[in-house]
Amino acid sequence: MQLTPPKHLAPFIRHYIFLENSEKDLRNMRLFTDGSTGLILSGDMALYTHISGEKMPLSFFYGALSSYKDFYSEGKFSLLAVVFQPYFLNILLKASAKEVKNQIISVEDVLQNKLEPFQESLFHQADPGSVINRLNIFFTAFLKKETGSGYDTIKAVQHYILQHKGSVSSKALEKFTGYSERHLERKFENYIGVSPKKYSNIIRLHYFLNMLNRGTGHENMTALSYRAGYADQSHLIREFKNNTGLTPKQYLKTENKLAVNFIEL
C-alpha cells in the first residue's frame, strides 16, 4: 500500500509505503538507491544486514545510498516506510547528509521515545492509514518549529534535475543557480549526501527504470537506454549494475518487487 502525504508535507515527504509479510520463511531483500532518504518504522520486525548478520533496530533512519544494501528477515513482519525528499533527513537530524550517507541510524538514538507510539500501533496491527494520519500530524508539528529557508536552493535544483529526468550537465546547473560547480557540490552533499552529478545519474536511472517497468512493448532495451539519455546500452548496463547489483534483465525477472527500489532476491 502506497499513500501520498498531504500537500503541505509533499516538499518533505515523497510517500508512505506499508509492507507486511505473513510468511515465516527467511526472505532476502535489497534496497537500492533512488536518491531519497527515509524512515523505517516497525513494531515486530527481525531484520538483519546480509554481510555482518547484525540485527537492525526496530525503527531506523537511512541516509542517502551510494548503491544498494542487502538484508534478510526472519518470520512475519509489518513495516511502514516513510520515504523522504532527500534533504528532509538533514533538517530532521540537524546533521550533514554527507556524514550519514549509507548509514543506518536508530530512531531511539535521535528522537528517544517520540516515535514509540507509532511502533506500538504497528505491533498491535493498527490500521496503517490511521498510523499515517498521525504521522502527518507529527511531521507537521515538527516542521512548524524546525524549518528554515536554507534548503530552498537545493529544493529548486532537485526540481530542475527531476524536470530534465536527470540529463543535465554541470554547466547547465551553474547557469541555473549562479553557483560554481564546487560550491553547488558542497551544498548538495551537505543537504542530500551526494553530488549533483551522482543525484542526476540516479534520477536518470529511475527514469529508465520507470519506462522499463511500464513495459511499452514496442521498444527494446537499446531504444529505452537512448530515450533515458545514455550514450549506449553498455553504459546503461554498467550504471544499472553499479546502483542495483543487477542487470536490467535480472531486475525484470525479479518477481517480488516490494517497491520500485526494494526487492526480494
Rank of each mutant, 00 (worst) to 15 (best):
Y179I: 03
N190S: 12
K155P: 01
K187E: 15
G178D: 05
T140F: 01
G193L: 02
S234Q: 14
G148D: 09
E219I: 12
M211R: 06
F188V: 13
A228K: 00
Y179H: 08
F123K: 15
A231Q: 12
V157Y: 04
T140G: 08
A172F: 02
A223Q: 14
H183A: 12
Y151T: 04
Q163K: 14
E146L: 03
Q233S: 13
S225Y: 02
I137Q: 06
M221V: 08
D127C: 08
V194L: 07
G193R: 00
S195N: 03
V168P: 01
Q158P: 01
A141Q: 10
Y151N: 01
A231L: 09
G150H: 05
L143V: 09
A141T: 05
G229R: 06
G178E: 06
N133G: 09
Y207F: 15
G193E: 01
T153F: 04
R227C: 01
E185A: 13
I203T: 13
N213T: 10
Y199H: 10
L122N: 06
T177E: 09
K187N: 13
Q163E: 13
G148Y: 02
R214K: 08
I154P: 00
L184F: 08
K197I: 07
N133D: 06
N213M: 14
H159K: 15
L236F: 06
N220S: 13
R204A: 11
D232I: 10
L143A: 08
F118L: 08
T147N: 09
S149G: 13
G193Y: 00
P117V: 09
N220K: 07
F118Q: 03
T222A: 13
P117S: 08
K155A: 15
S149R: 10
K175E: 14
